[in-house]
Design a protein around this nucleic acid. Structure first.
Lengths: 240, 240
DNA sequence: CAGAATCTTTGCCATTTAGGCAATGCTGTT
DNA sequence: AACAGCATTGCCTAAATGGCAAAGATTCTG
């Protein structure tokens, strides 16, 4: 039970943009201030959180950077995928991403940013919105479960109907790649393709994303075969 | 108490190179297997750890990547330092690093890798050995505390005598930069300089490192003024 | 292929520990 | 200067924990 609370506190701090005080944390995490105080003291002792020198407010600690980095480094997939991400970015001019499936969503592991001055941003450690992104739809198509029943609308074009989504997922399985047209963010287009292992289990997802005016439907369709090629080659990749 | 155990488990998993089973984790973390089993179940529920599909063994989970990334992003110092790291790397040809001080050591936040084929490796989220690295010595010189009394020898050239170290630290404070000559790793030379805020508190550390045959004492001395310049300019940097 | 040896999980129970309340000491604001 | 909000600490009860032991599952070995 204490773990849950500690986790809630960490989540609150992760979600907060700025440093927070004990009471504020307690309120947002739904725990008693006294519990928060004690938990924070323990967390601080292990540097999972850190209090700012002057204000006494808390933010996430460096130990988490260490643990996160350790969780990342386990996945040597990144080393294998790096050259492919670069190749994809150079071929299309758009940002290429590598994600891996988790229990509830897929998460960005690595990316190669577009060199264009107008580029779409990617961030390591950012989870996908399963039903509203190309990566997320690949995740759902190949075994990912959708926890909640309701589909939140991120933009006017987000798929919010379960039946429509299921149909799209089936299509993706057939075609081998997914697209998302301004479904998570207005002005952002993306495609994604699964990396499957010998058992046809989903081990990773390659994605491409760019501004909708440049990375339009034609560009997406044109890039898809190359994306699929790299994705399917990734598993067989060097040494594996 | 449960938090400590959970942390111990995470540490074990972070340290382990490969996935581990419940018993093995319990043994290494010094907890009862039954406790480990229950703790792991809780941790897995929150995706702090994840069990491999086939084997049932555990490794660190993606949530940690998210939290670590969140802890990192808080520090917009990276954005400020990026161009300086690049400039330093281009001027010297060696790997430039940005670290920030924690409670017990300094940690690498960002780096720009040398373009030379022979380059020294850097890694985000790696803590410094305080007494055996240039970065660590800057950390100690400007307020960092040294927890343990004993100084472990990483190489034959590591400073293991407390008095010698104290003298070196005093010198660093005077001179404004630190050096490490194969003290953490044979064949690796490094220098580092503090980034101080208005109160002369240590907010970050810039470092340069390279192979000893190329980044020799002369090259280090030559690079030092430029490093100091960037480090002291960083705090005043754009917008701040 | 069978027996053995681990490994993993779960029920059980005494003990420890956590969590809420309330009180105290602080900090910063009007 | 008074006050409101914040952070911390005793205290006590209730609940979660951790060790033991046993059962189920899996793997190794002969």
């Amino acid at each position: 039970m204490v773990l849950e609370r500690a986790l809630a506190i960490l989540d609150v701090l992760a979600a907060a943009g700025s440093d927070l005080g004990t009471n504020e944390i307690a309120r947002r995490a739904g725990v008693n201030p006294s519990s928060a105080s004690r938990l924070l003291a323990t967390l601080a002792r292990h540097e999972l959180v850190r209090r700012a020198a002057g204000t006494g407010r808390y933010h996430l600690g460096l130990r988490l950077v260490e643990l996160g980095s350790s969780a990342l480094s386990r996945v040597d997939l990144r080393d294998l995928a790096r050259p492919r991400l670069t190749a994809l970015m150079e071929a299309t001019g758009e940002t290429a991403t590598l994600s891996i499936p988790g229990d509830t969503t897929a998460m960005t592991l690595d990316f190669v940013q577009s060199v264009s001055s107008v580029r779409s941003i990617a961030e390591i450690g950012r989870p996908s919105v399963p039903h509203a992104t190309a990566i997320g739809k690949v995740y759902l198509s190949y075994g990912g479960r959708l926890p909640g029943a309701e589909l939140a609308a991120c933009t006017p074009r987000t798929i919010t109907d379960r039946a429509v989504l299921d149909k799209a997922l089936a299509e993706i399985r057939e075609r081998g790649w997914a697209e998302a047209l301004e479904e998570r963010e207005v002005g952002l287009h993306a495609i994604a393709a699964p990396v499957l292992d010998a058992n046809a289990d989903l081990v990773a997802i390659l994605g491409l994303q760019g501004p909708s005016w440049r990375f339009d439907v034609r560009a997406m369709r044109a890039a898809a075969p190359r994306l699929i090629e790299h994705a399917s080659a990734l598993w067989r990749g060097p040494g594996r």
